[in-house]
Design a protein around this nucleic acid. Sequence first.
RNA 1: GGGCGCGUAGCUCAGCGGAAGAGCACCCGCCUUACAAGCGGGGGGUCGUUGGUUCGAACCCAACCGUGCCCACCA
Length: 906
Amino acid sequence: MTETVRPTAYPESDPCLPAQYVPAHVEQRRYELWVAAGLFRADAGSAKPPYAIVIPPPNVTGSLHVGHALDLTIQDALIRRKRMQGYEAVWVPGMDHAGIATQNVVERQLAADGLSRHDLGRDAFVERVWQWKAESGGRILGQIRRLGLSVDWTRERFTMDEGMSRAVLTIFKRLFDDGLIYRAERIINWCPRCLTALSDIEVEHTDEDGELVSIRYGDGADAIVVATTRTETMLGDTAVAVHPDDDRYRHLIGTRVELPLTGRHIPIVADRHVDPAFGTGAVKVTPAHDPNDFEIGQRHDLPAIAILDERGVITVPGPFEGLDRFEARPAIVDALREEGRIVAERRPYPHAVGHCSRCGTTVEPRLSLQWFVNTGPLARAAGDAVRDGRVRIEPPELAKRYFAWVDNMHDWCISRQLWWGHRIPVWYGPAGELVCVGPDDEAPGTAEQGWRQDEDVLDTWFSSGLWPFSTLGWPDLTTDLERFYPTSVLVTGYDILFFWVARMMMFGLYAMNGRQPFDVVALHGMVRDQYGKKMSKSFGNVVDPLDWIERFGADATRFTLARGANPGADVPVSEEWCQGSRNFCNKLWNATRYALLNGATVDGELPPAADLGAVDRWILSRLQQVTAQVDEHFEAYEFAKVCDTLYHFAWDDVCDWYLELTKPILSAGDELAVARTRRVLGHVLDQLLRLLHPVIPFVTEELWTALTASATAAIEAPAAGIGPLTVAPAAAEPAGMHSIMVARWPSVDAAYRDAAAEADIAALQRIVTEVRRFRADQGVRPGQRVSARLAGLGALGGYEPLIRSLARIDAAGDGFAATATLSVGGRATVELDTRGTIDVGAERARLRKDLTAAEREAAQCRAKLDNPSFSANAPEQVVARIRERLVAAEAELDRLGRQLDALPDA
RNA sequence: GGGCGCGUAGCUCAGCGGAAGAGCACCCGCCUUACAAGCGGGGGGUCGUUGGUUCGAACCCAACCGUGCCCACCA
């Protein structure tokens, strides 16, 4: 099968790429080609091993920020690599309806028109949210494309779509039937602005300066002093509690005391919860407004008197009625003071206060009737799955946090007094019946018959917790579910380890009969600015990934993020670094350009190592090493190391040395050697581009296509340049579209590991660098020729022309006089004729500096070797290495000394 | 109040028991025929402090100082 391929980023008449890479010419077009060719689509029916990732669904509200870009880049890199490795890789995209967040956004829009959701009514409001979802969601999908993410668009899901809703109903019913979902009156976190219950994780604690007020309840001998930061709740007190063993109060237990301002008398009870050492050792008990007090109330059968309405306004008849809770507090303190009840005021008194994570309003503990998940058994299973190794958390340190959370989880309040979300599938009948409805059930009765459905919706995290299996078709036993569950890895920020990961674990294990939702949880950190500061709008350091994509390209943006991504570590980024990444892409572009101009090819077998020179054997050996390292780092989710390894291999080894070393070879005219090096050059770039493709997909695709296509063209029609081409896919690759996406992931070929070649080229590099350094120290102009004699090259003898070319030194002719000698690695020497070029003062200074260094080195080695404990305890290898160092240092000292003596006087 | 992590070159970080590293920034010199989004060379760190373990410590242990994050129903 053949494909017509048209290289696109450069004119057809010009066989060479332009000197700069322009991402905008490539990215969007290339993405559409990939989608059109179906390269992102997974086939559940294939025989390949499965590899699956579900996208952490972004909230439909808003747009993707740079944190998403990091998260998604990592996943794309994993998916693209596995796809190249021959896995059936599926990446399921989708979005989350984000109940409270989305409802807030739409309510704000309404508020701008002076409307509330109640003006529209429930149905119209929800309709309005769906409209917003379409608009906002479309923007996110566009961003996913711009980032080049290879998600399977045929499998896109939304947490509110029909299949997901069935999943929600199904699991709700099952949990209900198993007694793991219940309805109860409890103290929950209440947001008086959003007017809904919140779960524990939706509450953010901050330390605030409050006031600790000590109030005397009762009078005379029976008086008792309590301390509180929430003075206004005293209106709802129904007891005072003391520790049963507290001698100060033992005589009061069972008596009643007057509650100021109310005329009520409340009992003094004994409860072990009270800490006698804190404050006065006596606690006011307000069962309706404090979780601890609620429990004390339960134990002592105390009434719960609610004093606040849902907006936090005092409802108790009297002088404080109608006051907001924060107005009531000072008012009540004043009133108590007037009565002489205030014993002490401590201010400021710092203590933690909970805030609604969505709007920042101080949450109010409120007694109300809500739905809960009994998390006990679910959380235990979620912990065990990690403890017994079925699920691996990466980095492992973060597992401690996971356990701390999962092992101490309270029951989960799942009902929300919102309109946007999955409505709780419970109906209440005329006689107080309660019926939980599953996906296949009818409503038990009509409104006329007196039946009504629960008004509340479920916490967003309830449906997100089903994501890894509901997106694959659950509750139906689909092929996707069978093939791709458990998913391979979950990639997300450590910030939602509790919010989301723990929920998915609980539900996944429960719904899928003990099978975990994913094998690995790979956690990354937060994107920060170049000083490690958190990004914030008010600080003005927020990076918009689209902005970077437009200015530097999607690849540069991705590379910048991946380059900082070590497991669990925060990722600092800056515009300068993104520029650096852009430069790197451009470097690859130009390296390929060089290769194309010099006839690099991927056609035909790679020559066996035995037929190759040291330069080619060296770069191939390095390639094997790098391939192995990249694999290792990928498997450890160490993307920063993947990038670092490839960056240095590409830039230092390939560009700075290999390409330079091939220049003399390719122009030497030995046809066979030229052909072989062209083949190696083609191979190295081919493999390098493949290794980089997961992280920087666009530029690698563009270059790889050009490299593989033009090589064929050069053979078929060397003179014609590059026109539309007919390219046969290389035999070893899967048939289909010619794309690096379906090219095989490089594997290590031990036959090309070559320690000798690596040592030889390392020596060559040292020689060249030494000469360059000498020239720079001496101020020898780059264009100025210096003649030199090389000796002791050994195996590098054949590379003298290369060395001369790179170091810019001429052969020694008649009248050559060695005036300076460089010794490299105790083996090769370079004698230079520096007459007319040398700066004697500079040379003397250089020699003295080197001499001092050598002296220090020798002294250090001697000190070690003279230490009997060292030779007794240190491993053989270490001792041998120190001996070698000493020998080398002494030889160096000798040489430098003689050279210094030989130097003419200034 | 508990728990976790981090302090290595000006900035961001890698190294985690045997000769102090990278990127960017900085200095010097170069339009060397793939690339000035580039090339060559260079300076710069008693690896937070103080003790300890070891023949040997940036690396292990302890304390302290600084810093960040997470969890938290002691009023």
